[in-house]
Design a binder for these strands. Sequence first.
DNA 1: GCCGTTTTCGGCCCGACTGTTTTCAGTCG
Length: 583
Amino acid sequence: MSLSNREIADIFARCADMLQIRGDNIHRVLSYRRASETIRAVPRDLRVISSDGGLTDLSYIGKTIAAKIDEMLESGELDFYNRLKEEVPEGLVDIMHINGVGPKKAKLFWEKLEVTSVDALKIAADNDKLAELPGMGVKSQQKILDGIEALSRQTGRANIGEALPAAQRILDMLLELPQAREGALAGSIRRGRETIGDVDILIAADDSGPIMERFVSMENVARVLGHGPTKSSVELLSGLQVDARVLAKARWGTALNYFTGSLAHNVKMRQIALDQGLSLNEHAFSPVDENKAIIESAEKTLCDSEEKVYGTLGLQYVPPELREDSGEIEAAREHRLPRLIERRDIVGDLHMHSDWSDGKNSIREMVDACVKRGHQYIVITDHSRSLGIANGLSIERLLAQAEEVRELNDEMGETIHVFAGTEMDIKADGSLDYPDEVLVELDFVIASLHSGLSQKREQVTARLLKAIRNPYVRMIGHPSARQYPNREEVDADWDAVLAAAKEEDTILEINANPLRLDLKPELARLAKELGVKLAINTDAHRVAHLDLMEYGVTNARRGWVEARHVVNTWSLERFNRWLSHKA
DNA sequence: GCCGTTTTCGGCCCGACTGTTTTCAGTCG
């Protein structure tokens, strides 16, 4: 039995941890970790890539790791991993994930106390066994107990939809202090990742004390994890960890670049700097000698903006969303980065619900709210009849709603165009929820998966293909049906889905709801490269959800998407022309 | 173990903070 991309990525990550505990060369460890990251981000099935002989084209996958991938694809097992497990107890990997415990401590607990699980470690700590170990003390022991508690409380990474507003509030509060000259969110939140491990906040100021003081004394702080003169760390009551750093304005560019990451992007930046005789860190560019040692007497180059950092290296400015070491450095070198889509390019929203199904607001309220947000056109797309839990519309109600939408549209005149549509279920048996003679009555039909999400790949793929090929279906809503934190994407043959969407001129949605962000960036990038049409929609179930569009735009930017790839950047006239041409 | 516009060997980021050190090791990002 073969393993999925994710399972293979997990195994390499665990190999890396075990190798590190064993004390292997750190760069060998990093190789496994990088390979794991690469595999996690690959949108294609490794089985397909492998049969095309393309594994070693992936970054950080060389001959050795490619062979290990093939072994797992064929046998479902990895001999190397199995042998590692005999040498290094697997529970140590979990212990390593406790905050404050790294490979050395994990190894220490194992060798001195024969502790090989988080539970056993907790018992040892409760009995004061840890404090007696060399290099340990009462405080370290307590820190580990806190870490174990945090681990059990943790539900994993926070969704960006929760983390971003919380982070923004803290940033705004710190920026109100008179000492703060400039501030920004950095890290994965700035890169727009779907989930956030912890929040990084940077403040430029000459006097750091009051800022650090204010930060650790915020009312929503559950505990202070660290409090130094220029860096502090807190855990909020929500469980979210937030780090704040203060630095000099003159170093703003290098610092923001450094703390925005990603790690892999930074490593490449530094390599390019070294190639030019410069060492790059969060403080400055420093000239280096032939041994790559910093020449202390030489003058350093400070950068107060990120543009200067990239400019110093002869690179085009790289938008944060692209900084994942997925080709952006190479493109920046040749000044051929795309002009990414922006929120202001969006002039319509093709997917929203009303109180006719499971929405909270009336059609009129949704329309008025969309007018306020400057949309030129929208589509009302309530759920279809088989989605009983969402009060899906019977054929009679659907036709009655279409009638009402058209009357409202006439009433709105030139203010906004309201199309009559539906979000129709692709049922578990593969059939569509309304017959063609009903669909023909609508202006815009979305087809979406809401059930049968754990079916086999062949089945799910066939359902998607059938929907894509229906002459009345214009768009597939949230194509992979993934939802944070608990629902994995469906298993489908995405190569086949993208090819069919291209052939049939069917739009694939980038759903802007932060719990979905579906298509994911990797697939969106593949789709636009193939010439598949995309649309970014809120899937709003209430007026407030209409403001989630920004998350969808960020997600699209992470997929290198430009305005020209996205249908709802088109004028009403062009959108109408496409609708009638396709019909 | 990967990688290459100084290439197939010799590199691979490094500074802040913490707690245990009495000059530094481990962790983290």
